[in-house]
Structures are given as structure tokens and as C-alpha cells.
Write a protein that binds this DNA or RNA. Structure first.
Length: 411
RNA sequence: GGAGAGGUACCAAAGUGGCCAAAUGGAGCGGACUGUAAAUCCGUUGCGUAAGCUUCGAAGGUUCGAAUCCUUCUCUCUCCA
């Protein structure tokens, strides 16, 4: 077979972008073949991402896969966003901390809308490049015989290979039988959707590979699986997640996004650039080189990272503002200019109660502790007496700890 | 269906009649330090300005006194069938 140099150049270009940052591409040759075919025929590849409509706020961790999808879109391919409304209505069993709440149809749709709203900060909303699908369309139509047929394709031993099942099994944590159906359902989605590619975090590898297995059984060309590394959270150890509290939220305030970015350990800087920003492969190389050669100060690299992230979600003006805020409050230890104002009744007040009222402390006990530990400043003066009676004045500045401020305003 | 083990604070895990608002670790919060909201070190961590109040799966009971003993219920795990 003769190779067309123009086509091959395009294949190489796409492959570089599409495989960037990926943990695994299974198998790479198939992806290359699919890309080549797509270029020759002019037919877009369909790329699936399945999501649970839990309605939660997205973190930068979620955006890692979204970024990858965006790159596919940029190469002219089409994203199939699969809303797991069927699985969502049953309730996500992996999250045992919350009672399994059954989501209603309306809740699922509302949550899906929340997801889309956030996801489109990363994805291209061009209808030619994205399609939203719901798995209840085919899953709810299956009867028990269909389910048994599907279940016969898998064994318990293989299911227990899956990491989180294995851990829970070994850790004496309950596994409900129907949870075994989840990977099957997810795999079946790929059959129903006839996907070319499916993207998921490395934790999804098992499920996503199930799609390949079932597609083969069905006589389809199996999808290529691309797994993306799980983004390590702010603590530098655990994966970024809501429950670990080590996350940066997509919808968070610019100041928080920026500040949190500044708190990541140095060794994660390059990883963050690679996985959650749009810097080019070349720029990424520059940054890595700079950090290694110590010509680029990690602090400056982080500041650039923070600015890049905030710009992406809030725009450049907000990013600059957040940077200034950070410099003022944390680098120079000054009081920022924009402090949220709170209206207070005039007249003498017990400081502890005031802190609680302003939500600078969750309870009186915590507020008292904060004061005793020297964490309270009023108009830049330390107040260490928990019995202190304060006479509020307009413009009075209360600082609780290093980074919580409130400005008083008399009613 | 049978036998056994277990459910402790945000999480993990000690405690097995009073000294337990409950060790310890993690997380959180405050302080010091720092380029940093990192690392490290120190302090602190139910609610209540106090008297006191509520906490150890749930409900009852024994006792002057229970996280600890008894009964029932409930959930989880392990082994056997």
C-alpha cells in the first residue's frame, strides 16, 4: 500500500496532539489507523465520554479528560457525551458515604445541564462537534433475558480484577451484586453508540476496556481506549477529588483558583501544565527545561500556571486581579483592597459572637480558639482577649487567620 | 439456612463498668518559618462566654455510675451449606 505523504503528515500531527499526556492508548496502532482512515474518508471519529449526572461541581481533575476531548474536537472529530441517566437513576454505588439516593428523571436532567454548563468551558459547543446522548435510550429497553445474556459475557473473577472492587473486597467493604452490572452497562453503551474511541481516567480502564470486549462480541470494530492520568490534588499525594478536599473547582472564585494553584507542590507544576492547560507541546517543553535547569523559578512557573488556569475559566482580567490579590495578601502580608462587606447592628458586641455571625468561624468554640491562638486582628491589631467587647465602626476590618477578612458596615 | 467477628468523633483506629468529651494517626484550624495556601516545627480540634448539655449503629434494661454488662432490632464482614 502506497502512503500519501500529505496524509501521513496529518496523521503524525494529529497523533502528537491526541496522545499527548495520555496514560495509555490501547492500542496505539488502532488509533493511528482510525485517524488515517478518518483523514482519507473525511469522516469524523466519534469519541465517547461517559459521565454520571451527579450534579456536583467539576474540579480540574475532571477537566483532564475534557481537555483531551477538546483536542479531538480541534482535530475535527466529534465528541459523544454520554449522560448516564439510567445508571444515575439507580444511584451511584461506589460512593458509599452517601445514602443511595434515587434520582428522578428531572434531577438527572438538571444535573446533566449543570455538567454541560461547566464542561463547555472546556469543550467546543459547536453542534457539529458534539452530540449528547442518554443511555436510558437503550438500557431501559432491555429485559431480563437481555441482561442475562449480557451478564454471561463476564465472570466474577474478572470483575474482581477491577481495582476498586478488589480493594473493597479485600478491605471487607460491601459490594452489592448489581454493582457488577455497572461495567457491563458502561461497556454496552459503547456497543449501542458504535464508538471509535473512548476516553476515561486510568481508574476507568477496566470499564472502558469492557466496551472493547463487548463490541468485539457484537462484531464491531472495537473502540480505541485512551486513559488519562488522574490529576494529583493540591496535597501532592492523593488524586484530586471533592472528598479529599484537595481540589480546584472549575466554578470557583478566581482568588481561590489562583491561590490553590500556588499551593501545589513544585514537582506537579509541569504535570498541571500538561493536563489542565492548553499550552502547546513546545511551550510545555520550555517550561520543563526551565524548571530543570533552574532558570525558571518554581514560584514564577506557578504564577504563570495560576494565571493560565484562572484565565481559562474567568478571563484574563480576573486572572490579573487574582494575581494581585495573591501578591498583596500572601507575599506582602497586606490587607487586600476588596474585602467583602458585612452589615452589622451598631452597639457593643462580644467578638466571639461577631466572628461566628460573620461566618469567619463555624462556632463560638472555634472562634474563641482562634482568638486565643492569636489569629484575630482588628484593624491590623491583634486581639487576644476572648472576652473583648467590640464597638463596631464603619470600615472596621476584621481578619481571622491569614486569609479571611471582613469589613464592617453599620446598618 | 448455620457458625463466628464487628459497627467508636470528619476519616482511620484504641478503649471493654467510674481516672472517657473518649488515646493515637490522618485531615482541619491557628501560630512560627518560607518564593508558596508546599515542607517542617509548635499549638489546637463536640456544643455552650458559664452552670451545664448532647456524643461511641438504634431502641430498651441492669447499675449510685455504661462507649464498656444484658435484651431486641439493624447494618457490614468472614467461614460453612
Amino acid at each position: 500500500m502506497k502512503k500519501d505523504p500529505a496524509v501521513e503528515a496529518e496523521v503524525a500531527r494529529q497523533m502528537e496532539v491526541l496522545t499527548r499526556g495520555a496514560a495509555e492508548v490501547i492500542p496505539v496502532e488502532d488509533l493511528e489507523a482510525k485517524v488515517r482512515k478518518s483523514i482519507k474518508t473525511g469522516k469524523q471519529l466519534t469519541v465517547k465520554l461517559g459521565i454520571d449526572p451527579t450534579g456536583s461541581d467539576l474540579t480540574l481533575g475532571h477537566t483532564v479528560v475534557l481537555q483531551k476531548l477538546r483536542q479531538f474536537q480541534n482535530m475535527g472529530h466529534k465528541v459523544q457525551l454520554l449522560i448516564g441517566d439510567f445508571t444515575g437513576m439507580i444511584g451511584d454505588p461506589t460512593d458509599r458515604t452517601e445514602a443511595r439516593k434515587q434520582l428522578t428523571r428531572e434531577e438527572v436532567l438538571a444535573n446533566a445541564a449543570t455538567f454541560k454548563e461547566q464542561a463547555f468551558k472546556v469543550l467546543d459547543a459547536d453542534p457539529a462537534k458534539i452530540e449528547v446522548m442518554y443511555n436510558s435510550d437503550w438500557l431501559s429497553a432491555m429485559n431480563f433475558a437481555d441482561v442475562l445474556e449480557l451478564a454471561s459475557k463476564m465472570t466474577v473473577a474478572r470483575m474482581l480484577e477491577r481495582d476498586d472492587f478488589k480493594k473493597r473486597y479485600e478491605g471487607n467493604l460491601p459490594i452489592s451484586l448489581h454493582e457488577f452490572m455497572y461495567p457491563l452497562m458502561q461497556g454496552y453503551d459503547s456497543v449501542a453508540m458504535k464508538c471509535d474511541v473512548e476516553i476515561g481516567g486510568t481508574d476507568q480502564k477496566f470499564n472502558v476496556l469492557m466496551g472493547r470486549t463487548l463490541q468485539k462480541e457484537d462484531g464491531q470494530e472495537p473502540q480505541v481506549v485512551i486513559t488519562m492520568p488522574l490529576l494529583v490534588g493540591l496535597d501532592g499525594v492523593k488524586k484530586m477529588g471533592k472528598s479529599a478536599g484537595n481540589y480546584i473547582g472549575v466554578t470557583e472564585e478566581p482568588n481561590d483558583q489562583y491561590g490553590k494553584t500556588m499551593s501545589i507542590p513544585d514537582h506537579l507544576i509541569a504535570t498541571y501544565f500538561e493536563l489542565v492547560t492548553d499550552v502547546t507541546v513546545e511551550e510545555l517543553g520550555e517550561i520543563k527545561k526551565g524548571l530543570e535547569a533552574q532558570t525558571l523559578h518554581p514560584r514564577d512557573a506557578k504564577m504563570l500556571l495560576g494565571r493560565t488556569i484562572v484565565t481559562k475559566y474567568h478571563g484574563e482580567a480576573a486572572a490579573l486581579e487574582a494575581e494581585n490579590y495573591f501578591k498583596t495578601v500572601f507575599q506582602n502580608r497586606e490587607i487586600p483592597e476588596d474585602i467583602p462587606e458585612y452589615e452589622v447592628e451598631p452597639g457593643e458586641k462580644w467578638v466571639v459572637a461577631l466572628l461566628t455571625e460573620l461566618k469567619l468561624a463555624p462556632s463560638n468554640g472555634e472562634a474563641r480558639r482562634l482568638i486565643q491562638q492569636g489569629g484575630l486582628k482588628i484593624n491590623s491589631e491583634k486581639v487576644e482577649d476572648p472576652q473583648f467587647q467590640l464597638v463596631p465602626a464603619d470600615g472596621m476590618i476584621i481578619q481571622a487567620g491569614k486569609r479571611k477578612f471582613a469589613k464592617l458596615k453599620l446598618k
